[in-house]
Design a protein around this nucleic acid. Structure first.
Lengths: 187, 187
DNA sequence: ATTAAATAGTGAGGTAGATCACAGGGTATG
DNA sequence: CATACCCTGTGATCTACCTCACTATTTAAT
């Protein structure tokens, strides 16, 4: 199981056994049941999470109690409310399990420590962050340029497994469309 | 003028004179006139840009020739088509001047070099990238949760100067709303 | 096994915003 | 100074999508 994290990192930077054992000291492992919260809106955000197995949603609930899914996080993805995490402010979103999930957790101090002690990890995190930024910008572009039906088709093409793992209502909340409208797309 | 870049970096990490002079070796300075392109969709993306003065738009043109503005870049901002830049693939967007603009340019090799030779610069770039990611995610949230009028009001509150520097049509292309609809918001 | 609770489909009606068409004012260029 | 072009506002019509209401079906809980 620790190998999952190591393989993930070594896709980008090779690590010595010694380096990896230091990396491990900065992480803890936690398990959550379906529907449990890793943190909730308004709370402190103690960790950033690497998903070893399972599925999470990063979700914002607006004043009319509508849920909007900012991001899903499946195996091999990193997730948190990064604004709240880095600035140590209350979460503006919640992070919740859509399935039973196992995560590696790292505190903001652990993150700094890792960057300071293992420069290779800073390279790794920079590449992850750049990739995350590019992905987010592509999502913005998709929201600007395509209608809901096209976004739905893009999504099932890009993440075919996701559509089978989450309810249509969750997909709709991610796509920015109502459950009912989404339902009419494939009928 | 070189001080602009140094001050920008030193807001996050202090640099010795020696370090900064190495940093400078990785950059070139270029000037562009209003409406000029730094690169166009389909072309190679030679640089990432730090805006010393002026204003840029990162823009995607769809199949019906509608422009969609993924991002503006004012003084002190970094901009490029980062996917194309890092992966050395043809640009999917264009970067164009909305005003006469002076930029610092860094090639992908320069970027790598900088990270390798000056670890502090890697920290700097990681913080910038994280901030960029957080910003992009907030824009996604804004597109998911609010209507065009609310997004317009958010924008003029967050970047009051921007609304005075660009045409309403450009604002509309950024907000994801038609020029005509935007016009009706303040009348 | 029975009840309760999610989940998914569908009709009817309403609304935000798009699109098309046109007109007036500003400003750049010869 | 005149012509051309860009920018902005505004009316009229159209459409993608939302909201509300109801039903059917599957899944979870006692």
């Amino acid at each position: 199981m620790l190998e999952t994290l190591r393989n993930h990192i070594e896709k980008i930077v090779p690590l010595t056994d010694h380096e990896f054992s230091f990396v491990l000291t900065q992480f803890t492992v936690e398990k959550f049941k379906k529907n449990e919260f890793l943190f909730q809106c308004g709370e402190n955000v103690p960790y950033a999470y690497y998903v070893e197995s399972g599925l999470l949603k990063l979700v914002y609930t607006d004043d009319r109690a509508n849920e909007h899914i900012v991001s899903f996080a499946m195996e091999d993805w990193w997730e948190s409310d990064f604004h709240a995490y880095f600035h140590q402010t209350p979460a503006s979103m919640s992070l919740q399990c859509l399935e039973d999930t196992t995560v590696f957790c790292i505190s903001p101090e652990g993150y700094q420590q890792l960057c300071r002690e293992v420069p290779k990890m800073e390279s790794f995190l920079l590449q992850k962050s750049n990739a995350g930024f590019i992905g987010a910008q592509q999502r913005i572009l998709s929201l600007l340029t395509t209608n809901a039906k096209e976004r739905y088709e893009q999504l099932i093409q890009q993440y075919p497994t996701l559509a089978q793992r989450v309810s249509k209502a969750q997909l709709a909340a991610y796509l920015g469309v109502s459950r009912e409208t989404l339902s009419r797309f494939y009928s």
